[in-house]
Amino acid sequence: MTGNAVEVKQLTKSYGKVTAVNEVSFTLEPDKIYGLLGRNGAGKTTIMHMITAQLFATSGELKVFGEEPYENSRVLSQICFIKESQKYPDNYSVQDVLELSSSLFPNWDRAFANELLKDFQLPLKRKMKKLSRGMHSSVGIIVGLASRAPLTIFDEPYLGLDAVARALFYDRLIEDYSENPRTIVLSTHLIDEVSRLLEHVIVIDGGKVLINEDAEELRGTAYSVAGTATAVESFIADKKVISREPFGALLTAGVTGRLSEAERKKADALGLQIAAISLQQLIVQLTSKKTDVKGGTRS
């Protein structure tokens, strides 16, 4: 089982005239943590459903651990997919869910699951339908972590979880991943919270891949310039502008690219203020005002 965890080529999913996923291509290398990011309706969940064989692609190629995932138990036993609103049979208790999971996932670690159960303070005997929203999400997180599946996908796993529980999740994830590396996909809106956990970022926008880049490469590749409109305009004339926010005679512009020392001095001389743009701000700017975005796809 050498090679990539996931290979997607020209993957497309259409519903009648609506194209939810439009010729998407990317690869997920083994043992890396990926962020699959984008706005609601961008096509992220559809892509994850295809990778996990819960949805057929309209066209394109899809390989998971080198094989087609559909009705392929060898591949499917290596995937753990934790969904935003995972459903369980009504009469299942927390314990039943964990028992079932231990039989589904070959790498299941019972001791680790028990530890997590204590960390998240879950009542073992309680029925799933009697759990609060946050507890329900915690069960998903425990299953996702303790499964140690070679491909683990978390799709917005935090509904109802408070900041403390989310921090606990990140903590346990990084700890366990360090000891047991595997391919992990985090799909979330809370980009600032997870960005430093990610090794690679894929941003989906309007059914297409907008960014596919190493997370560290993205950090510090965008900055904002603020000052009088004329000064800002002259500074950004030869640059790739991703946003413009006028405020009276002032203008703040978002720019991608690294700032050279000479440019920094030029900005100083023009009386401009330069500030870094975080990954979350960058993605918000790239996926919100489409009219201002030039170029589009990066590689």
Binding site: I33, D171, I174, S178, E179, R196, L197, E199, E216
Partner: peptide, 15 residues
């Protein structure tokens, strides 16, 4: 170690 840095700062071990 890289893993100690990773869990201390909550960052990716590769980073």
């Amino acid at each position: 170690s890289k893993n100690e840095f990773a869990s201390f700062y909550q960052i990716n071990p590769a980073t």
